[in-house]
């Protein structure tokens, strides 16, 4: 259990704002409003891509001491999320973890786990159970 009294936050990062928003919508409908949830997608010009600044803002908007699990789609989304987390500095950056999991299923599973008050480690592990070994 999370001992901070707050639920772990979930951040969804896709190259496409529509994929990110749609994934967030699925999480909200399937899991409800108990989990701090944010999404971002698209580059600075509104094209497909990701932005470190947008990722940082999304993480900050749902961060608590319980931590944040980040779900990403492809390549640059992961690299840019890693960069955003690094820029948070210690000790905050140690409370934010990128899940090695498919973005939609991972987000729903992570949020489901988080909504029950699970710790960040449990939330991440649950999402990652979906990944092929």
């Amino acid at each position: 259990m999370s001992d901070t009294g707050q639920n772990v936050g979930i951040v969804i990062v896709s190259h496409s704002p529509m994929v990110a928003e749609g994934t967030a919508q699925m999480v909200r409908q399937m899991v409800g409003g108990e989990v701090p949830l944010a999404w971002c997608g698209g580059d600075l010009d509104g094209g497909l891509g990701t932005s470190v600044e947008a990722i940082s803002n999304a993480i900050n908007s749902v961060w608590s001491e319980a931590g944040v699990a980040v779900l990403v789609d492809l390549g640059g989304a992961e690299t840019n999320s890693e960069m955003a987390i690094e820029f948070m500095g210690a000790p905050k950056r140690d409370t934010i973890v990128i899940c090695n999991a498919p973005i939609v299923e991972g987000a729903v599973m992570a949020a489901t786990e988080a909504s029950g008050g699970a710790s960040l480690g449990e939330v991440v592990a649950t999402a990652q159970e979906l990944s092929p070994l």
């Binding site: 580059d43 600075l44 010009d45 094209g47 891509g49 990701t50 932005s51 470190v52 600044e53 390549g75 640059g76 992961e78 690299t79 840019n80 890693e82 960069m83």
Partner: peptide, 12 residues
């Protein structure tokens, strides 16, 4: 570059 490139090449 990290903040503006938008793809994996920004962080790299």
């Amino acid at each position: 570059l990290v903040m503006t490139v938008g793809g994996a090449s920004g962080p790299l």
